[in-house]
């Protein structure tokens, strides 16, 4: 029963089947449809040709193009067989490689530029550092030199002070041989006997007196340049008071003039003739009178 039906339907069915088979065959052997590999290869080449390879690595891109052309030829000549697929596979990889090489070339150039920039920057930093170093060095050197100078200055001052003190001590020692030196409230008082400096009744300094006064002026007075000096002339009570006053004034002036001639500023020195007003010994004996005939040099330290 079924067989009969089948047989009966046979003409129509077989015609339809034939059509279906034919259309299938058309698609199947219609090698006009490229294999997936070839489609991928075309896309890969398209991507690569739009990438940096066109500029950077044209030779590699050309190799990829040749591989694609070969795959296309095989597809045209032999359809979508294994040979075509292998060739297309090769073309895909070559296109991808060309693309990669193009990117690599760009990266290499970027690297080169970056290294150049880095080198320039390093140079800048090096120069800057060197400059700062040189500046610091110079500053240090200046400071060191200043320190050295002030140290030398201090040393010179110390030596000068020591020398002055030594000289003063020496001068004082020398002075004590012919004069009395005392420290009083009014300052250092140097008492020189009138007989040492002047001939009796004269107000001119003898040569020996000058040498002695030179020592006084050089040592004691110059060692303290800001001190003020008072020179007092004194006599005994023999003779007229007016004469004694005048003589003592002249003698004090003579000493003052001598000091000025030695380079001591005039405004530092005062001279007073006090006559017999201030005896330091009784005028009753020749020794006492000799003691009273004297010149006192009073050195008053500068008021601080």
């Amino acid at each position: 029963m079924r067989t009969v039906t089948a047989l009966r339907l046979s003409p129509t069915t077989s015609a339809m089947a034939l059509l279906a088979v034919l259309s299938l065959a058309a698609v199947g052997c219609g090698s006009t449809l490229p294999p997936k590999e070839l489609v991928d290869a075309r896309a890969a080449y398209d991507t690569a040709s739009k990438g940096p390879a066109a500029q950077q690595t044209p030779a590699e891109l050309h190799t990829a193009r040749q591989a694609l052309d070969q795959a296309e030829r095989l597809f045209n000549d032999e359809g979508d067989g294994q040979v075509t697929k292998h060739a297309a596979y090769d073309a895909i990889r070559k296109a991808q490689a060309a693309d990669s090489m193009g990117r690599t070339a760009v990266l290499a150039k970027e690297k080169e530029a970056a290294e150049k920039d880095a080198q320039a920057l390093e140079g800048d930093i090096h120069r800057k550092t060197q400059g700062e170093l040189a500046k610091t060095k110079a500053e240090l050197e200046r400071e060191r030199a200043a320190l050295e100078k002030s140290r030398e200055q201090l040393e010179r001052e110390r030596i000068a002070r020591e020398e002055a003190e030594k000289k003063a001590a020496q001068a004082l020692a020398d002075l004590r041989k012919f004069a009395e030196v005392k420290s009083e409230a009014r300052g250092t008082v140097i008492t020189l006997s009138g007989g040492v400096l002047f001939v009796s009744n004269e107000s001119t300094l003898s040569a020996g007196a000058m040498a002695k006064l030179a020592e006084v002026s050089d040592a004691l007075i110059k060692s303290d340049p800001d001190s003020s000096i008072t020179i007092e002339g004194h006599t005994d009570n023999q003779g007229q008071a007016k004469y004694n006053d005048e003589l003592s004034q002249k003698r004090a002036d003579a000493v003052r003039d001598y000091f000025v001639s030695r380079g001591i500023a005039k405004d530092r020195i005062k001279s007073n003739g006090l006559g017999a007003a201030r005896p330091i010994a009784p005028n009753t004996s020749p020794e006492g009178r000799a003691n009273n005939r004297r010149v006192e040099i009073i050195i008053t330290p500068a008021k601080k």
Binding site: H86, Y89, D90, I92, R93, K94, Q96, A97, S100, M101, R103, T104, L107
Partner: peptide, 16 residues
């Protein structure tokens, strides 16, 4: 042939 193509691509990608 395929192995070679892949290996060459691996070289290019490693370099990149």
């Amino acid at each position: 042939s395929r192995a070679g193509a892949d290996a060459e691509l691996a070289v290019a990608l490693a370099k990149e």
